[in-house]
Design a protein around this nucleic acid. Sequence first.
DNA 1: GCGCAAGTTTACGTTAACGTAAAGGTAATC
DNA 2: GATTACCTTTACGTTAACGTAAACTTGCGC
Lengths: 126, 126
Amino acid sequence: MSDTNQTYSISDLAREFEITPRSIRHYEDQKLITPKRNGSQRIYSKGDRVRLQLILRGKRIGFSLSEIREIIDMYDPTAGDEKQTEHLLRKIAERRVALHQQQQDIETMLTELDQLEQKLNQNIEA
Amino acid sequence: MSDTNQTYSISDLAREFEITPRSIRHYEDQKLITPKRNGSQRIYSKGDRVRLQLILRGKRIGFSLSEIREIIDMYDPTAGDEKQTEHLLRKIAERRVALHQQQQDIETMLTELDQLEQKLNQNIEA
DNA sequence: GCGCAAGTTTACGTTAACGTAAAGGTAATC
DNA sequence: GATTACCTTTACGTTAACGTAAACTTGCGC
């Protein structure tokens, strides 16, 4: 197995994802990620790295950190009672609606860019 | 033709798009929209309304107001020289890359939500 | 002509998401 | 053992995108 116990320092991850250590610590402040510690040093596991990827993906889509935390919390096996599960299912449904809306918006914008590009190309030919 | 000369007050548009007049004025401060005036009153045309829609669409996708202005400026027939046109074409290409990235991110997140939902449904059955 | 709703400008306040600086601990390296 | 490279916490600063309040004008209905 591909060394599932690999760990990373904060600057390892910062380098890899081209963000600052400050940002990563900020995500921790906001309870989005909670690495182990070796003394005072943060030790990030593969799972932490995946969470960080999820955070950054959420950001690219335009979600706020608190929205991202909502999503992350869904993945948490805090789970248990059935009420909670139904609540999560509703949350998931809401998210899906928002994401579909974004897909629409992006497609609209992409076709608008296409049209714009055509116009500009015509101007060049002329 | 469907009354192409229709106009709107600021609160008309605020109501329609469920935002505050303050936001619309803010977009004007940021040069995203420049309605006509009747004395001191702002008069919005159909074109202004379309611009506002474009602004809100951009926001939903997660763009900042200055990014949205960049996009809006592309639509502007300020145009003219060829250098400028090529610059725009590059900008358009950049935008497209970002939008495609977002599409990827959204699809990833959607399938993750699907998987999560399945897990939760299993928990209910069990 | 008066009140009220809707418009205006000016300006200070607020929140999110970090940036930046200060002051200090730790570990390898020369 | 001193420098160097990272790490830490604490805390104040900054920017974007408005919110909110104050003070004033304008048009409509009665």
